[in-house]
Design a protein around this nucleic acid. Structure first.
Lengths: 255, 255
DNA sequence: AGTATACAGGTTGCATGCAGCAGCGACGCT
DNA sequence: AGCGTCGCTGCTGCATGCAACCTGTATACT
């Protein structure tokens, strides 16, 4: 895990990025893949050596990661990898559901119906993935992409930059993201059917938005998020599955 | 506006603070009081000169302010003061209401009833302020303090650090805070009675929490936040009142 | 006259030096 | 032997130097 010269999969399109962004991506990746264990202090110098970037941008990246919630400051100075109780994760999911619910309601109340086109297209793509290719690894991958896009489209339709920012932040805890547990589901046959339920909710929420049924859209979206909570509960009993959850290593086994 | 040697009211207890925190407080104050007009680029060097702090901590403070949402990055580099449409402000208030509503529901569902003591004490203090001293300037000030404490106690009772963080962030836009418009109300007689309504909602939400009526607590808290929206609407017609809203200078007159 | 170009000033992004502090280990004292 | 104290090492927080970049202006050319 401690290759000295090379660093994780941030290979593509790193060249033009400013150093700070590069450092942010690298450190986030290191944390999520578990290379930096929770609770451990992150030495600026060691990261600087491993990445060839000087301490200044690394420091900046760590500050941003603290805002994201992945690291925390140590009273005596510096930063440490944060860890999360299971309750924390459930709460994060509930928060996302609440905010996405608000987005869905606003989309229903004030969204421009012109946006329904892309939404429906996205729905249809998800349908195809769920119906046909869901058994394959690549199918899950496609599902994750399309699922993320659908959620983004709904948030867009709310037309509230403030809300968008807030949701972005809520989702920056990766296991709270809409796609957080999908890849884990590939390993848990008993949760395959959850995808059908999820897709049904997708259809219902879009229908509710189209009908300007704000309260309904909100309620569905909240319940939709709770599916992730159920998957988390399942994954907590599957060691292998939890490994596939981004940032799963940060979840404390004992609460 | 450009006093060279001195800076705003950050006089008390600055000595022991690290430079970064000091810079953060100073810059935030400069923005909120309107010394740095919205849209204007914040020159690191000029702030450094005005504060006597070097560029490094100033830069760090600006990054944090960007996360808070008070400044934004300029594509060509550096930071600028952000401005907000009226819709942005309403949305920010709605988001706070949603999150505080979630907090109230969680407090009702899983909060420890031992926490009701301080809550009721706080309620009583608010009662006294509202009944007697509300006509005076100092009365409003006391109201702001106690109101902030009540809101904080409710959030505490939800016992969710994640949610607490998220609410902290939502409230970092100062005009979205529970106390954002209270000081403005002092200047708007027609909104005095709003305080009675607000206090009634305080009582009701605590009662709902005590009875473990989660849905009721959530709904009341959401509606409670919308009072701030009504005050905003009033304040937008009172030039003087808007001046008393922290960060009021950042709200664009035209949407 | 209008436009394009080149130059200059200022500003950021980054690297690095330095001082101060916290943590840790070893040594001496009781 | 146990405990307290001293010294050291490594680290962070901050200051500053430097190069690249963007912007704005003035000039020259069409």
């Amino acid at each position: 895990m401690s290759q000295v010269a090379e660093f994780p999969s941030t290979s593509e399109a790193d060249k033009g990025q400013p150093r700070t962004v590069k450092a942010l991506l690298i450190i986030r990746e290191l944390i999520l893949e578990g290379a930096l264990p929770p609770g451990k202090r992150i030495s600026e110098l060691s990261v600087a050596e491993r990445t060839g970037i000087s301490r200044t941008p690394i420091r900046a990246a760590l500050q941003r990661l603290e805002e994201e919630g992945l690291v925390e400051t140590i009273p005596s100075g510096g930063f440490a990898v944060k860890s999360f109780s299971q309750q924390d994760v459930f709460d994060a999911i509930e928060i996302r559901g609440t905010l996405e619910g608000l987005a869905a309601r606003l989309a229903a109340e004030r969204g421009s119906m012109a946006r329904l086109g892309p939404l429906n297209a996205c729905l249809q793509e998800l349908d195809e993935v769920v119906e046909s290719a869901i058994a394959t690894e690549e199918g899950f991958s496609r599902y994750v992409t399309a699922n993320a896009r659908l959620h983004a489209l709904i948030v867009d339709m709310a037309e509230s930059p403030t809300l968008e920012r807030q949701i972005e932040r809520a989702v920056s805890l990766p296991f709270a993201s809409p796609s957080g547990f999908v890849m884990a589901q590939a390993l848990m046959p008993e949760s395959h059917r959850v995808l059908f339920v999820a897709q049904d909710q997708h259809r219902c929420v879009v229908e509710a938005i189209a009908n300007r049924e704000g309260a309904r859209a909100e309620a569905i979206m909240q319940e939709h998020a709770r599916l992730a909570g159920r998957n988390l509960r399942l994954a907590l009993h599957h060691e292998k599955a939890l490994e596939r959850v981004p940032g799963g290593a940060l979840i404390r086994k004992v609460r």
